[in-house]
Write a protein that binds this DNA or RNA. Structure first.
Length: 659
RNA sequence: GCCCAGGUAGCUCAGUCGGUAGAGCAACGCACUCGUAAUGCGUAGGUCGCGGGUUCGAUUCCCGCCUUGGGCUCCA
């Protein structure tokens, strides 16, 4: 029997019998590896374990507990889901079912317009477990286009995919299904179930099993509102029971941190339906946190920026000039007819800042001119898109528009990045990544050269600053390239917060000019930038990041003072008074609940410091300190506690806001 | 806007196969005066989201609307 030789990622070589597969290779290396294997990378391309290896191939085994491995498990589990649905609901048309981050989905068109209910998920899960137990093989075959069309004759969506792929119109999702080659690859599980797929897949369904179906949702075919509405089932799948459970625990943890839930529990704010969708009222506890955030923001802008204020309404002419009525009308609230014209609530602050810029002649000596405003804007978000504070219809941007010369741009961006990171760090974020969005060649204003120059300035700034970034080709708005900054929160989720956007459009539309040192008029570049983005959304992110336990400098109540018995209440009140006089937010608890209950209540409110005072404290001028997340200390001198508190609060290092 | 699931006391939820409702927590009152995460007893609290229909009778069934949540789409 002839031999083949393959090389492994570590550079070593192995000899195998001709016709050997990746699973044979894995077995020859070790039974543990064979057991963990779910796929292989052969000569750089993902491949089935059961595919014969070519002689001289570079082979890496994909194991289950890796990103690639999980992706493969999830994709295979999606096929099992499709088979289960087709079995349970005969006549179902199945469409696409990719792996996604942390899971997978599959979209179906059910006979007679049937929709899935939550109960159906159990039914489907059980059927999936049967399929997995049956250990059906995933058998790959490649067929001609005409054979494929015949094979899927009763599956119009599959036929549409095949036709698009073969006519060269495939996009990413289609390519996932069948690849983009000449022939069509399919995977067969049983005589009756075969699915279009590029693969690879696990060798058999028995390799799967640690999955959970999560929710039913509607989704448009091909993501188009004009297409039919399909029924989507979301699920997750993992390499082991433990990993699945860990994931589900993580989801539960995220749910516990949900800012809408915590906003109610901690009495921060509410969304009364009488107000209207996407609008919030801030209760005192939420408002104080917001005020502290805004105070901090203002303090940080004190030096380099000039504060401005602009109204909430503007005449339609302004938005005609800015172009918002052309490009952004769907996002704007309906107009109001008034005596001398038509007015709109502003969806953005930039047009008004441009009016300030051009209110008089500007000299190059004034640039960069940085106008700053906590500006409240109103946007008509579609009803289905509203989401707590994360997506609302009225919100406040920590908005600045910077007018500068082309030559100033890069230095400006570098210092902006530094400023942004510094502010975000003060709010407890330490992990940052950026996206650089570049020109969409089909939709842009301004010259190619200015785009190139600005994009290079942004890229250079990111490189100089040393921030990790990805380039999103073609993702910029039509008016200029941008940098978006993502942070990672305490449970590893990414949030897009800050943004820096160049604008070559508004300066033109408003005919902004400055007089240069050459005594000629020049057009400035405009940069939109926001650090929080939206104060409301940033607040929501903070609530989730801290799980409602705000750091001492932001906590609505920093100290609660509890008297052991009524006899100590006067002393408790005097401590509150003392702390308040020093500028801290302290409260005495006047309920006549038992001490343990009052402590519990304070803990549930996530107050950073609970002080308990009794006979000993009254006698000695001390307090018992029960810090959030720390151990109880008795007999602490009041001054010592004040110093601890002061140090804790000062950790945010607020310039200009020191106590 | 589209698909799905909800809307019952301040909050979290149970319930009624059609005969107008219940728990825990919270609130209030009384007693307990307590040294570090839930003392006991009691009181009050609801047009069961809104409007229509079917019915002797609707919170329950049907229709419409509003609203919330999960998705899709959207976010120049």
């Amino acid at each position: 029997m002839s031999q083949i030789s393959v090389s492994l990622p570590d550079g070593s070589k192995r000899d195998l019998e001709s016709g050997a597969t990746a699973i044979d290779l894995a077995k020859s290396i070790g039974s543990g590896l064979a057991k963990a294997a779910v796929g292989a990378v052969v000569n750089g391309a993902e491949s089935d374990l059961t595919a014969p290896l070519p002689d001289g191939a570079q082979v890496a085994i994909i194991t289950a507990a890796t990103d690639e491995g999980r992706h493969l498990l999830r994709h295979s589990t999606a096929h099992v889901l499709a088979q289960a649905v087709v079995q349970l609901f005969p006549g179902s048309k199945f469409t696409i079912g990719p792996a996604i981050e942390d899971g997978f989905y599959y979209d179906f068109d059910l006979p007679g317009g049937k929709t899935f209910s939550e109960e159906d998920l159990d039914l489907i899960s059980n059927k999936m477990r049967e399929i997995i137990k049956a250990d059906q093989p995933f058998v790959r075959s490649e067929v001609s286009v005409s054979d494929a069309l015949q094979l899927f004759a009763d599956q119009p969506y599959k036929c549409e995919i095949i036709e698009r792929v073969t006519s060269g119109g495939a996009d990413g999702a289609d390519a996932d299904e069948v690849g983009s080659g000449e022939s069509i690859s399919v995977y067969r599980n049983t005589d009756t179930f075969v699915d279009l797929c590029r693969g690879p897949h696990v060798p058999s369904t028995g390799r799967l099993g640690h999955f959970a179906l999560q929710k039913v949702a509607g989704a448009y075919w091909r993501g188009s509102e004009k297409g039919p509405m399909l029924q989507r089932i979301y699920g997750t799948a993992w390499e082991s029971k433990a990993a699945l459970e860990e994931h589900l625990t993580r989801l539960a943890e995220a749910e516990k941190r949900d800012h809408r839930r915590l906003a109610t529990e901690l009495d921060l704010l509410s969304f009364p339906s009488e107000l209207g969708g996407g609008l919030a009222v801030w209760h005192p506890k939420g408002a104080i946190v917001r005020k502290l955030m805004e105070d901090y923001s203002r303090a940080r802008h004190e030096r380099e920026y000039q504060f401005v204020y602009t109204p909430h309404l503007a005449n339609a002419n302004l938005f005609a000039t800015s172009g918002h009525l052309d490009f952004y009308k769907d996002g704007m609230y309906p107009p109001m007819e008034m005596d001398n014209g038509v007015y709109y609530p502003k969806p953005m602050n930039c047009p008004m800042h441009c009016l300030i810029f051009r209110s008089r002649q500007r000299s190059y000596r004034e640039l960069p001119l940085r106008l700053f405003e906590l500006g409240t804007v109103y946007r008509y978000e579609r009803a289905g898109t509203l989401h707590g504070l994360m997506r609302i219809r009225g919100f406040t941007q920590d908005d600045s528009h910077i007018y500068c010369t082309e030559d100033q741009l890069q230095a400006e961006i570098i210092s902006l990045l530094d400023f942004i990171m510094s502010v975000l760090r003060a709010f407890g974020f330490n992990e940052f990544t950026a996206n650089l969005s570049t020109k969409d060649p089909n939709k842009y204003v301004g010259s190619d050269s200015i785009w190139e120059k600005a994009t290079e300035a942004l890229r250079g700034a990111l490189d100089t600053y040393g921030l990790e970034y990805k380039i999103k080709e073609g993702d910029a708005a039509f008016y200029g390239p941008k940098i978006d900054i993502d942070v990672r929160d305490a449970i590893g989720r990414k949030w897009q917060l800050s943004t820096i956007q160049c604008d070559f459009n508004l300066p033109d539309r408003f005919e902004l000019e400055y007089v240069g040192s050459d005594n000629a008029r020049h057009r400035p570049i405009m940069v939109h930038r926001a650090l929080f983005g939206s104060v409301e959304r940033f607040f929501g992110v903070l609530v989730e990041h801290f799980a409602g336990a705000f750091p001492a400098w932001l906590a609505p109540v920093q100290v609660k003072v509890l008297a052991v018995a009524q006899a100590h209440e006067e002393y408790a009140a005097s401590i509150v008074q003392h702390l308040s006089a020093l500028g801290f937010r302290a409260e005495a608890v006047i309920a006549d609940d038992q001490l343990g209950k009052r402590i519990r209540n304070a803990k549930v409110e996530k107050v950073p410091y609970v002080l308990v005072v009794g006979d000993d404290d009254l006698a000695n001028g001390t307090v018992g300190v029960n810090p959030r997340g720390g151990d109880v200390q008795r007999d602490v001198a009041l001054n010592d506690f004040v110093n601890t508190l002061r140090a804790d609060v000062a950790e945010a290092a607020i310039p200009g806001l020191s106590q």
